[in-house]
Amino acid sequence: MSSVTNNTQSAQESDLQSVLSAEQIEKTVSGPSGQLTILHALDIDVRSSEATAIVGPSGSGKSTLLGILAGLDSPTSGTVTMLGESLNELDEDGRARLRAGKVGFVFQSFQLLPGLTALENVMLPLELSNTDNAEERAHGMLEQVGLADRTSHQPLQMSGGEQQRVAIARAFVARPALLFADEPTGNLDSATGTKITDLMFSLREEQGAALVLVTHDDRLAQRCDRCLKMADGKLVTL
């Protein structure tokens, strides 16, 4: 069992609803020298509007954990519950349906679709969740991230910072309950990184989304409500 439990949560936090919880999750992969355990029986609970940072050195299993929590990958054992539904009982398409419009992502490598314009990229989650006024809302969101004049630009025509702002607009446009961010400033210089972080946190606060942030940037982690550290596939509270 991990050394981290939710008994450290404050009374105020416990009033909030759990949007994501993982119990006893373990991930084992087969490697050249036999079975390799990446995650060791982790428990984690994320409440609505709460920002949780997961920090740790490269190779400690942060991204694997994020993938499992977001339903992008399945644990070898243990259960994950997202927005009240058990991911274990859903197949991959079921998990995708659950994410549509309710879960946002910000990636280190932006993951914008090349060839689509900024506006079209931001419209994607709305279209996937069959939301009306997709174009109007995407426009509004791009305005909010300061890219009203770049709507028809394609990712390769934009700087890294601009691309990440488009990615943030895409993540928030559907007003998700839960946001996953994987090293969002990893590909940016420090000044741009700070601006992006400010933008992300202000939008999160405004929309009240829960955030799970994977980073090795301590300053970024400190802006979260709580910080968990991963080491050798285990979590410790900081």
Binding site: L72, D93, R97, L98, A100, Q111, L113, P125, L128, S129
Partner: peptide, 16 residues
């Protein structure tokens, strides 16, 4: 295949 992964992350099913 990369675009397919992104779309599925954002909630599209394999079928779609």
């Amino acid at each position: 295949s990369d675009a397919s992964a992104v779309l599925r992350t954002l909630g599209a099913s394999r079928r779609e």
